[in-house]
Design a protein around this nucleic acid. Structure first.
Length: 254
DNA sequence: GTTCTAGAAC
DNA sequence: GTTCTAGAAC
């Protein structure tokens, strides 16, 4: 029996379409202003037929050090835009459908760590309204499906949620196993971003939008990232990252 | 978001 | 002396 909700599980398929890129460009051209991302940054495509100097809104930096334009780091190449690029790459895609795509986090903070991203241009949770409610629910459902498909036989517990103040542009739902067994988990900020209220449960975001029509983030989020390291399973305080990691081993299943 | 590394902490 | 953290980075 084929589940019609998930017809596009991608495994070895390379030729899959990338509707997001096309849609996004079209919107920008047509002057549709539903995107609140203030980035002339995304226009750094070399072959759009738009003359580089013809857009006064593009405050591009004059060529430095005699490097050619392809080495410019300010626009598409900026690290904060990385998800927009990764989500288009078929090699990164673990799942996709008409609304969302799932990729593995490039620097996973646990044995399993995926990101669910909408194709639609959504800069952050600040841009989310009731019209995105079904999308948020779908992202949640897809997250559960990815867990079932790729870690279904594992004993690991999972959580799904959003960072209160994400570093990377474009709304992304973290789907992460609770072992936190990863060499990429290196500092207090990493730990606290997943183990304090800085991590906002997917379900909570859905309910916020359902009740209030938008997502509000409480004050004091940056301070949460500096809290002492505390085990998420037994609440024990640990004095350093290496000692936290050693401690976490005793909560691993089996 | 990461890398790099000075100097604090041990 | 070594480990570890935390702030700057083109």
């Amino acid at each position: 029996m084929v589940n019609e909700l998930y017809p596009y599980i991608v495994e070895f398929e390379e030729e899959a379409k990338s509707p997001g890129l096309e849609t996004h460009r079209k919107r920008k051209r047509s002057g549709n202003s539903d995107s609140i991302e203030g980035d002339a940054a995304q226009e750094a495509e070399p072959s759009t037929g738009l003359a580089p100097g013809s857009d006064p809104s593009q405050c591009s930096v004059p060529t430095k050090k005699g490097k050619d334009a392809s080495t410019k780091k300010e626009s598409l190449g900026h690290w904060s835009q990385g998800l927009k690029i990764s989500m288009q790459d078929p090699k990164m895609q673990v799942y996709k459908d008409e609304q969302v795509v799932v990729i593995k986090d490039k620097y996973p903070k646990a044995r399993h760590h995926w990101l669910v991203l909408p194709w639609a241009s959504l800069a952050s949770l600040k841009a989310v309204t009731r019209e995105h409610l079904e999308l948020l629910k779908h992202m949640h459902t897809v997250g559960e499906k990815v867990i079932a498909d790729f870690a279904g036989s594992s004993k690991l517990r999972f959580r799904m949620g959003y960072h209160a103040i994400p570093s990377m542009s474009h709304v992304h739902l973290h789907v992460i196993s609770q072992d936190f067994d990863s060499p990429c988990l290196k500092n207090k900020k990493h730990w606290n971003s997943f183990n304090t209220e800085y991590f906002i449960e997917s379900q909570a975001v859905i309910e916020m939008v359902q009740e209030g029509g938008r997502v509000t983030v409480q004050d004091g989020m940056p301070e949460l990232l500096k809290l002492p390291l505390r085990c998420h399973e037994c609440q024990q305080l640990l004095p350093s990252i290496p000692q936290l990691k050693e401690h976490l081993r005793k909560h691993w299943p089996q």
